[in-house]
Design a protein around this nucleic acid. Structure first.
Lengths: 341, 341
DNA sequence: CTTCGCGTTGACCACGTATGCAACCGCAGC
DNA sequence: GCTGCGGTTGCATACGTGGTCAACGCGAAG
């Protein structure tokens, strides 16, 4: 094989059959007699034949490619999701084309995806401009937003019930007797942060309370640190903090212990969101809200592939239930039970 | 656009030029007059033309695809690497086809890569059977192993100087006056674990010591926990542990503190390897050996793309220097300096 | 005016595979 | 023995693009 390509024609020539026969042998529904199939397979084996997926994609109009756009992997919720998504798609016979958002060059990134004739797009924690969404819809490429909602776009989405999760946190902290409950937000323009905060406020309201203070964390370590200093550098400090995700909650815990000399949960309660693996590490033992990662991935794949199969883009939204995970980083209500589902 | 495909022929028809002209307009070295270029671009704009990357790949023999095989993302060193690798390749005009190893089905995975005519393969923390390596070489597809070496295969590799890193840890712990220094290994068959252990033994030997005990951690949390129990459930306990990577070192620290009631570093020193982001978190403040992730990624990309450009697979190995990062999880030598260089 | 040469253009083919269509074979029924 | 039919097989074409080659036009040199 000089320049690296053994084609179906080569196999046909060796097996003394037509190229069509080779193609049919490797196509699921092909009508081939047993002896021909055997001869073809023997020749293919001998030459090391491997069907060219690109040529197959061209003729069949099905590339078998799914684009996956990810914003950042610092938050360890996303590596988990990425791994599960990739495995699920791989098992269903699709290949994953991975893209990292490139700060404002998202348009170019999506163009590249479409150039490669991807059959579907999953966007994890990344935004999509409405013009791009329309462009995808025009080419018939379904898009599923993971852990994010953007109303009014012709795209589907899968999220967990962020509002309900926030509400449960609000009730838990209020019922535990905290008096000054603060919130550290994520990116202000993200639906996750907004929903979690709104639910949180409602949970507090149901217990006759309101949030004591809030600060913007932006879902980054640096932003979280600034938010902690803004809240705890003040005259009167919060006695509980709900942080919009675990990633930032760890920063808060480190800072509160090391720099402010506070004990957790004796002096201050901390609650996060996501239940990333580190949340159960002994050093943090973080009370948090578990997002059903596996179920979200399953829903995403199902929703996307259904559209791929039926060759039509629909607009659906799945909201999956989440679950409060009580650990040691927050005081718990004394006698009665906490907030019920 | 009925069924989603506007072709160069459509553009040519609208612009009243030949299809060749459209192709030349979108090809870098094409000889096109300004006015024709303008007409073509206008027509393309109007129709929303997007060159079909698959067709281009077929004819040019260059798919622009690089396969990336990753074993697991639990160890947070790899998400970082994945993100950097993906960004680097993306910036150089290549697309990343992502694959997760599927326990023994690696052969199938590599076959799928080759079917998609990838121009190169990066394997991060995953093994490659020699038969597969030869198959890749036969098709002229360069392979670069990331953070792993397998001698005798026609593939390149990029690693850090694991032996030297291990040696420095050995010297540090010995010179700090520890008497019973233990080692928790990774996967026994991985080159990283072997090299780190060998260097560690040499570092100890240079100070007239030998390892007090060793246990197998297998690079997993569960394995690390078993190893810790094996070492510290014994009659006489180590007073220092070198753990083959940070991922396992965190498990060890949690267990030593919570279950064995030991203080770090007063009762026992812990040293890891990798310098993942969590290593600097206040709760751990882990002394570790920093792998030069960015440089390793850069070397990987350079090595791979050079082979892609020159269309020949060569066998090279890059070993990059690593750096001891002294933090608070290990006692430090009192007066004189630690290990040189 | 003729000729040469250069830059531009279009017709045509190739890349490797899937598939419609026609031809073909063998067999059963009349 | 002829017809009809179901199952196989090969031929030819299409998918969308890049590149080759000859033709063409136009300006400059003789």
């Amino acid at each position: 094989m000089p320049k690296g390509g053994v084609t179906s024609g080569d196999v046909a020539q060796l097996a003394r059959v037509s190229q069509s026969a080779v193609s049919r042998t490797f196509s699921p529904g092909g009508s081939v007699s047993p002896e021909m199939r055997a001869r073809v397979l023997a020749a293919a084996q001998q030459l090391g034949y491997r069907p060219n997926a690109l040529a197959r994609a061209m003729i069949s109009g099905r590339s078998g490619l799914i684009a996956l756009l990810v914003a950042y992997l610092d938050n360890h919720f996303y590596p988990q999701v990425l791994e599960m998504l990739s495995r699920a798609l791989q098992n269903r016979g699709f290949q994953v084309l991975l893209f990292m958002t490139d700060r404002g060059r998202q348009d170019m990134v999506v163009q590249r995806m479409l150039q490669y004739q991807v059959e579907g797009i999953v966007m994890a924690s990344a935004t999509l401009s409405s013009s791009l969404a329309r462009e995808c819809a025009k080419t018939g490429t379904p898009v599923v937003l993971f852990n994010r909602t953007v109303p009014g776009l012709p795209v589907s989405s899968v999220t967990s019930d962020n509002a309900e999760g926030g509400r449960q946190v609000g009730r838990l902290l209020a019922q535990a007797g905290h008096k000054r409950i603060a919130f550290i937000s994520g990116q202000e323009d993200s639906s996750t942060s907004r929903d979690r905060e709104a639910g949180f406020a409602r949970g507090l309201a149901e217990c006759g309370m309101t949030a004591f203070a809030r600060a913007v964390g932006g879902y980054t370590r640096e932003g979280a640190a600034r938010a902690v200093h803004a809240l705890f550098g003040a005259e009167v400090r919060p006695d509980a903090v709900f942080v919009a995700n675990d990633h930032m909650a760890f920063v808060a815990m480190d800072l509160l212990r090391a720099q402010y000399g506070l004990r957790i949960p004796d002096d201050v309660s901390v609650v996060g969101y996501d239940d990333v693996p580190e949340a159960r590490w002994a050093a943090y033992d973080l009370t948090t809200v578990a997002q059903p990662g596996a179920e979200m991935v399953e829903a995403t794949v199902a929703m996307l592939l259904e559209q791929v199969e039926r060759r039509e883009v629909t607009r659906r939204a799945a909201v999956l239930p989440c679950r409060l995970v009580v650990r040691g980083s927050a005081r718990i209500p004394a006698p009665a039970a906490a907030g019920g589902r």
